[in-house]
Design a protein around this nucleic acid. Structure first.
Lengths: 97, 97
DNA sequence: AAGATAATTAGCCAATCATCTAAATATACT
DNA sequence: AGTATATTTAGATGATTGGCTAATTATCTT
């Protein structure tokens, strides 16, 4: 997993919205696009960025591409995000102060 | 806290490195800068981005500016980051699969 | 095989970003 | 007051980004 790609992918609000949508379940490109005011190609570009970060995966189902969250990478990404802030030798879980 | 600023701040590897350094303890601008190959003004720009996201705070101590992590905002930011991936109604902690 | 639908890739453009050098500001020292 | 040190702000520049339209690819339907 490329940490840099992950953080860059998360930098855009549309992409974060896509991730949030997919966290509730798989969706086709079209279903996702309907929720946005931007053009199809622009959405497609966001899919590419998210795929480059390996945060999502797409599989073709007939005419449509069904996108789903790559939960494995999402877990790893969250670990790395927490690492940015974690004091080493201070094994803290998220809820801890 | 401006979520958008937070994610933009995290998008740059130098800024993530700064945060990691500060998570171990406060440091002056100069001490941080020594660890980087980029110019002073560039580092200063990164401080500004991190300050805009309220992730760090700087206080003057004589000639130096001492930077520290804004732990309150860091906590809130982590919550928001987790929200990007969390299925609602599925109260999951970080360690859970 | 022709046309419709779903989505992508290609190519362009304006806006943003990370970096730089030069100049400015703030504090300390002599 | 004058100089050195620490850091920032100002302004410029090349690279990256997010958006668009047009064209392409893949699949389905008739």
């Amino acid at each position: 997993m490329a940490i840099d790609e992950v953080f860059k992918a998360l930098a855009d609000p549309s992409r974060r919205r896509i991730l949030r949508m997919l966290s509730k379940g798989d969706l086709t490109a079209g279903q996702i696009g309907q929720d946005f005011d931007i053009s199809g190609p622009s959405i497609s570009h966001h899919f590419n960025v998210l795929k480059a970060a390996e945060l999502i995966r797409g599989r073709r189902d007939g005419q449509q591409i069904v996108y789903s969250l790559n939960t494995t990478v999402v877990q790893d990404a969250l670990t790395l995000i927490l690492d940015v802030f974690a004091k080493p030798g201070h094994q803290e879980t998220f809820d801890e102060t």
